[in-house]
Amino acid sequence: MAELKEELKEKIIEQLSLEDVEVSEIGDDDPLFGDGLGLDSIDALELIVLLEKDYGIKLKDPKEGKAIFESIKVMADYISKHRTK
């Protein structure tokens, strides 16, 4: 799981062009949206694509993302349970 969390942090930084953010600066429980990493609705769409492309998880309802993308820890839990690749 720790490996998946690190991988997610690296992918998020790259996919969302968070040039000034280091992997070590993202806490496992930090909120990804709002006061935490400060991601926005466009980032949410990018993360939905990332889930499908890299882990084979296709969200049927984009609104599910709100809960899944709460933090790195929640996201990693969800991926480990639902991944198809």
Binding site: Q15, I42, L45, E46, V49, E52, K53
Partner: peptide, 13 residues
């Protein structure tokens, strides 16, 4: 490269 799949919004916008 992604075979017309997984298009993200940012680059299009």
């Amino acid at each position: 490269y992604d075979d017309e799949q997984f298009l993200t919004p940012t680059l299009f916008i």
